[in-house]
Design a protein around this nucleic acid. Structure first.
Lengths: 257, 257
DNA sequence: GAGTGGTCTAGACCACACA
DNA sequence: GTGTGGTCTAGACCACTCT
């Protein structure tokens, strides 16, 4: 390094810059994380893409490799990235096996994890009632899609579910028929809407006539009801769904840590 | 450092020692984690204790502060430790609020998180049947405790549950009556058995006569059934329990990441 | 002021994948 | 062999807590 370049060096360190951002201190590695997440949201880094190496990112962003590493590790822990020693860091893909493990918790009691097959029953445009609008943070009476599906495990009908999506973000959803098994792959691949996390509420309810018919169980039989809100990379709600599941020979698996 | 001391320095670095442990390479920070966890298991570091500082631990264990930090951070992420800037690192306590958030997922639909009050219905010694023995990795016909409880939320009976514990590890459990609300605090404080994690299976079932009576619901009403196995610091099963929950105005909350 | 964990940096070497 | 992420080290300064 020449003397001239030393003279020209910025007088602020990365750390100082972090502080200068304002009275609300935010660690550099979180700022890095937000910038990287932003590229994914903008679609510059689509699922499956190989990221630049840690060294390159560090040089590009003007921070040390260790800081980039901390941001990447955190994103990998949240399943937004996949790191592979010797190969590189990739944007996570909504691959069937992973999505299944992450977002589909219904298992046969024997412990296997078979892939569910889904059949779309109906897809229609509608308007959000007050409750749905609140759950998806839409305006009341906003346009939505309502998708009804029947899902089978090992060929046996086990789940009836209704999926609600904001029309604005999934404008030409009806052109995608037949809808694939893995909706989250569709959201990410065709609509740029990656699902990052979800919140679920579980209840036990009695089967109504429609569910009983679809699932081949007696009316009044106990069903597991799962209400889900799924959130995007920007942490805003993307999808709302209600699933009614037969749980006679199946269960919802959960780990508490 | 003098020349003499340089001469006397061990010729192996911490990294090399990690490798020498055998053909199965295990990162140093995981070895550190295991040693620290071991102290908790042995009871040398009981819940609430202040750990030595990172610098002291690093010196004591012969590794760098960064390696100790990585082990401590991982243990804090698993809720085994609590780190407080400016104060130190503490062994996590089975404090009511935390345990509730971590292991008790039933909430009123309005979103509050009231403390459950529990009433012991019966506690008796028994012998494990084949299934229970398998779940708790005990020998068949091993001695066990069976504890039945009724749990209320906001004063309303909501859960009937049966807790099964190995007799060997909880020998004088009957001397602890009346049993406290927070069983996991009892396990940790009186029996040196800290619960580190749990696996749950959820189903919807129909209320039998006994449950209907206890919960004040119609026979056949849908109930949420939760089967849980709780594991200790050594990752071996400690407790098995089955909970039957009214979920008319309550739900089981879960986050998927 | 002293001591703690939290953040950031810089650099070394190892394990792994691929050409 | 080259390049990647994974691990380990050493040291600096900051934010926080308590005395």
């Amino acid at each position: 390094m020449t003397e001239a370049s030393v003279k020209d060096m910025p007088e602020t360190t990365a750390k100082e810059r972090a502080k200068q951002e304002g009275p609300l201190f935010k660690p550099l590695y979180l700022q890095v994380r937000e910038r990287l997440t932003g590229r994914m949201i903008e679609g510059l880094w689509p699922p499956g893409m190989l990221l630049p190496s840690e060294q390159r990112l560090a040089a590009e962003l003007g921070v040390s490799q260790g800081t980039v590493r901390k941001a990447l590790d955190a994103m990998a822990a949240d399943h937004l990235l996949v790191r592979r020693q010797g190969r590189g860091t990739f944007v996570a893909e909504p691959e069937e096996g992973r999505i299944l493990f992450q977002f589909f918790r219904l298992r046969p009691d024997d412990g296997r994890a078979p892939f569910p097959e889904s059949t779309a029953v109906s897809l229609r445009a509608d308007r959000a009632d007050a409750e749905t609008a609140a759950l998806l943070t839409l305006e009341s009476r906003a346009r939505i899609w309502r998708l009804k599906r029947l899902r089978r495990l090992d060929g046996v009908p086990l789940i009836v579910e209704e999926v609600v999506l904001p029309f604005a973000r999934f404008r030409h959803l009806d052109r995608e028929e037949p809808l694939p098994n893995n909706l989250y792959a569709l959201y990410a691949g065709r609509f740029g809407a990656t699902i990052a996390r979800a919140e679920e509420r579980l209840k036990a309810v009695a089967a109504g006539r429609a569910e009983a018919t679809a699932l081949g169980c007696p009316e009044g039989a106990p069903l597991l009801r799962i209400d889900r809100i799924a959130y995007g990379l920007d942490d805003r709600p993307v999808e709302q769904r209600v699933s009614l599941c037969l749980s006679e020979q199946h269960h919802y698996a959960n780990s508490l840590r």
